[in-house]
Computed example of a mutant assay.
Amino acid sequence: MITPRRFLPSISSLLALEAVDRLGSASAAAAELSLTQSAISRQLKTMEDQLGVQLIERSQMRLHLTPAAKVYVQTARSAVQELARAALKLKANPAGGSLDLSILPAFGMHWLAPRLQDFARRHPEVTVNLGTRLRPFDFASEPFDAAIHFGQQDWTGVQYLPIMREEVLPVCAPALTNVNFDTLDTLCAAPLLHLDSRPDAWERWFEMQGQSVTGLRGMMFDQFSTMIQATIHGLGVALVPSYLVQDDLRSGRLVKAWDGPYVSLGSYYLVWPNDRSTPEPLRSFQGWISEQLEPDTSL
């Protein structure tokens, strides 16, 4: 049941309280909301009378939120932001049906984006909104219905739909091959490039080759795209997913730095929270993405 109306302040009062808290004065809040200072003061007084709680401390012509009001305004701000997001969704798709999906940049650009036109054609009733998150998050505090996750099934509180296994290989610019990476020791001594969301990737790769190494250092990148460009320009050897560098290998911009089999350090999954009902747009996306999968059942 919805909370009794007497406990629900008006949106205009909430906006006034939020603006005073954020901007520090009634005059600044009035300017932002295109109101007068007296209008701001009336909104705040109305809210205090309605809730029966002091919200504002007035001193030397300045307004300050009480400690209790500061706690309250954090929740109010989140609620107003959620309402604004809902309004944007409604405006973007008046017929209803939107999917807020968190993606990983490289996977989203190279695997998902080329396929999304097919989803849009087959499900015109669904608007897909994409946002980037590099690591697992709390669905209760983030505005997403589902997410693309890489690694193992170690994200708690979610359900998993396997998408594909990722295989990685060491690559470098052709000019670096004169170093002659013919042993794991020479490769280990090379300038190795690292991704900050996978800080132990090289150590795990060497372990799979039968050699234990620790403390590997080198340049750090936050995305595969910039790391691959650095590799093309000869800054070092990168450990990258094979699907990201197929064109660069074919064109000769990159070459394999080690002539061994590809190895897998993890898989991609579609994940969604298991403590809420599955909205229909997500059901449509789950069904569609299942049809895009490779016939690999070993994930």
Rank of each mutant, 00 (worst) to 15 (best):
P4K: 05
R6Q: 15
L8W: 08
P9L: 13
I11D: 13
A16Q: 07
A19H: 04
L23R: 15
A29R: 07
S34W: 02
S34E: 12
Q37S: 07
A39N: 02
I40L: 10
Q43P: 00
L44P: 09
Q50D: 04
I56S: 10
A68M: 07
A79M: 11
R85Q: 14
L88V: 08
A92G: 13
N93K: 13
L101P: 02
P105Q: 07
P105R: 06
W111M: 06
L134N: 12
R135D: 09
F137R: 03
E142G: 00
P143G: 11
P143H: 11
A147F: 08
I148F: 09
F150Y: 15
Y160P: 03
I163V: 13
E167W: 10
L176P: 05
L193M: 12
D196A: 10
W202L: 01
F206I: 00
Q211F: 04
T214A: 01
G215W: 00
G218I: 02
F221K: 01
Q223V: 13
Q229K: 09
Q229A: 13
T231P: 04
T231E: 07
I232Q: 09
G236W: 08
P241A: 15
Q246A: 15
Q246E: 15
R250V: 14
S251Q: 14
S251D: 15
G252P: 07
A257M: 08
A257I: 01
G260I: 03
S264D: 02
P273V: 02
P279R: 07
P279G: 10
P279M: 02
L282D: 09
S284C: 12
W288L: 06
P295A: 12
T297L: 07
